[in-house]
Each structure stands twice: as structure tokens, then as C-alpha cells.
Amino acid sequence: MKFVAFERAKQGTGASRRLRNTGRTPGIVYGGSGEPLLIELDHNALWHALKKEAFHSTILDMEIGGKEGKVLLRDVQMHPYKQQVTHIDFQRVDATTKLHMKVPLHYTKSEESQAVKFDNCVVNHVMSELDISCLPADLPEFIEVDLSGLKKGMSLHLNDVTLPKGVTAVTRGKPNPVIVSVVMIGGEEPAAAGAADAAAAPAADAKPAGKDAKAAAGKDAKAPAAKAPAAKK
């Protein structure tokens, strides 16, 4: 993707506020062999570019002063309640230096898996993006994960995913984290619970019935005997 930026002469809070009032967004470009460069961008064009996934995860062509350079989006600052980008950061790209990036995971064919199609399961996406390290030329826009082989009770780990050539995953903590899990829904477990409740119901009813019978028997025992009618003289 390509975008146009302009050099920014003034800096500071007041200058940035005035810039935003004119429909511009202040930013900075850093890294590589050059000095940090203050830039400004058209806010409307930037706003629409940020809605595209590729703008966040691919190498961008930045045109400034008639020259082009390769950069990566590193940080976006938003207004607390307005639909406004208040500041943006880009990093220069060196073709010989490895990048550390987060790229989105695109899950496909889950509806074709045995777990979803026949076993009434739900596929839970534990991870939506992955930290990777690679050279700029090998940076993928996204990583596709095929879920057609999922079965009931199964989990998909990072080692089960085939990464693009030249790309290595960067993990913290667990070396082989779970990225997808299969969860059972409805059907068998609720039915079993219902059967257990039905079996327990007669026993529960029998106990009160026994108490009622005992109480009734006690009342009959305590009741005075009926007097015989007096004989007529």
C-alpha cells in the first residue's frame, strides 16, 4: 500500500492541535540510518487506510518530498471519544534487518470439520494474531490456518500450523501455545443431567411420603375411640 506524507516544520502541543483543526494528523518516522522525521498526513485518507488490514501488517510505500521509502506502521493514537487519529508512528524498513511484527490469523474451513459438522461442537479461536520474526521481503499479510481436520475434544497448537517460508514464531512463556480449542455444546451432557434428575425424583418423593404416612399413623393412634351409642330404656 502507498500513502503520501508531508514534512512537518513545527512541533509541540499547540502546533499539533492547530494541525488537527485543519484536517491533518501529526506523525513521526524513525529507525534505520536516518534521523527521526516529523511528518503530517491527510486525516480522511489516513482514517480510511487504517480500516484496511493490510495497512497494519504489511510494508508500506511512503511518498514524501517526491521520494519513496519503505515503512511499517508501529503505533496509532486515537482521541478518547471522537473519531479522530491524534498521532501516528512509522518505522523505516531495512531490507537486511529482521522485523518483529504481529500478523493476523485467518481461520478457514472450520464448518467442514468433523467437530462442527457431526459432533455439534464450537471452535474457539484462542489467538487472533501471532508474533513473528522475518526479513521484510518475507513478511506475510496474514497467516492462514486450515481447521478442516478438527475433531471433538481436540486442540490445535502452534506447532500444528505451517508458517510461510522465512517466518518464525515468537512465543513468550509456553513454547507451543494452544491457538484453537474445540468446545462441546448442548445435546449429550444436558440429556444425561436430565436423566439423573429424573432418577433422583422418585427417591425424593418417597421420603416425604414416608414421613406423611408416619404422621398419619401417629394421628390415628392418638385419636380418641368413638363412643358407642347409649341403649334406650
Rank of each mutant, 00 (worst) to 15 (best):
G66C: 04
K232D: 06
P140Y: 09
K98S: 15
D205M: 13
G166T: 08
G66L: 03
I28K: 03
L73P: 00
M127N: 08
E129R: 05
T96E: 15
T171H: 10
P164L: 08
M1A: 10
P177T: 05
A204K: 15
P164H: 09
E141V: 06
V4G: 01
P202Y: 10
P224E: 09
F90S: 00
T58K: 03
K102R: 15
A201F: 10
A191F: 09
E141K: 13
P202C: 12
E129L: 01
R18Y: 12
K109D: 15
G69K: 12
A203I: 14
P190V: 14
A195P: 00
D146W: 02
C134I: 12
G194F: 09
G34N: 05
E35D: 02
A115M: 05
L99P: 05
V126F: 02
L163W: 09
K67T: 13
G14A: 09
E111Q: 09
S16R: 06
N44I: 05
K207I: 12
G65D: 04
E53M: 03
K232H: 13
F55Q: 02
G32N: 00
H79I: 03
K117M: 07
R24A: 11
D89Y: 00
D205L: 12
A191H: 04
S181A: 05
I88K: 05
L38K: 14
M127T: 10
G149T: 11
E63P: 07
V180L: 08
K67Y: 13
H125V: 04
